[in-house]
Design a protein around this nucleic acid. Structure first.
Lengths: 172, 172
DNA sequence: ATGTATGCAAACCATTTGCAATGAC
DNA sequence: GTCATTGCAAATGGTTTGCATACAT
């Protein structure tokens, strides 16, 4: 069995234990959703998860999807992100190296960056709080948008100069 | 003039420059909103901002609030957070010590924590990306909810035991 | 004068909710 | 058999949008 299968088995086991402990039913939908999530590399949203299930003819309602995601969040098998848009992004929490996120505030692109995580000093300072997971969000401008911005700035400057010189600089 | 007034003057100046450069109009609404935001300590959301303006009889539409907040985000005077709920939180970016956020995934409480920020090593590793601001989100369970959770677990365990012993353990 | 910004109300859309039907236990 | 869970469709609510009006330039 390959690593991916092993991982799926492991998380299924954890999920089962969680469901048992919390007296929740072990429905096929729940396990199918978990399985699908752990087939996805990187971030996903509800729409893509829904579609990926429809694609293999597994019928689930969105309500069940949301319901199950919440369970998976509660038991720490899935992480939720809201990078700035209005749709939530998720990603599996297991077998997923911790990483920071570079979020372009202009185009919304999210780039992952692995690196040093929270220092021991920082973690030691956390009291009266049980840490489940953490992530650093770094907002800024990606290279593509820096370029676009630069172009716009030039245009604006040109406009301002024209305005100053002949007081008719008018362009979008 | 006290420090708060000085800060307000400083950000107003920056905002003005931004508006001028981008050929946006300097409307009283925009400056009033900036001023109100810089009167708020800590996080705020649209509703509370709206109310704080209504309270002093400054009439603004929500549309203008959203419009202006976007400008303030663009010029880096305001930060936006989405901690997990469905409403966005904001906070001023100037005169606001960098801090991490401890977010309780159960009750939604957000606690701020100042501490070591990104290491130089980490920042050096960021390429082709202009960092505006960053924040570490630490999800977990706050002390209050740990307690509640513990109570619930005990209840569940009791239920499970009863079930095993007499197979009629039934409680919420 | 010109066209950007405002205010209002309607539209949007991800997410949540209510309820009847299903199926795990 | 019981009641948690599902699926559907309607409701919710923060945010966005369209358009007529107001006002900064």
């Amino acid at each position: 069995m390959d690593a991916a299968q092993k991982l799926k088995q492991q998380v299924k086991k954890e999920f089962t234990e969680y469901l048992t402990l919390h007296k929740c039913r072990k429905t096929p939908e729940r396990f199918a959703i978990l399985d699908h999530i752990y087939s996805i590399r990187g971030h996903f949203d509800m729409e893509s998860l829904y579609n990926s299930m429809v694609d293999v003819n597994f019928r689930v309602s969105r309500a069940t999807l949301y319901n199950t995601i919440q369970l998976l969040l509660d038991c720490g098998l899935v992480m939720k992100h809201q990078f700035g848009g209005n749709i939530s992004k998720y990603e599996r929490a297991y077998g997923n190296e911790n990483h920071d996120h570079l979020i372009c505030t202009l185009c919304g692109e999210v780039r992952e960056m692995t690196g040093d995580q929270l220092t021991t000093v920082q973690l030691k300072n956390i009291r009266k709080f049980k840490v489940s997971y953490y992530s650093t969000y770094i907002y800024g401008t990606c290279s593509k948008c820096i370029h676009v911005k630069r172009m716009e700035m030039k245009k604006l400057e040109r406009g301002n100069q024209t305005k100053q010189n002949k007081s008719n600089g008018k362009q979008t």
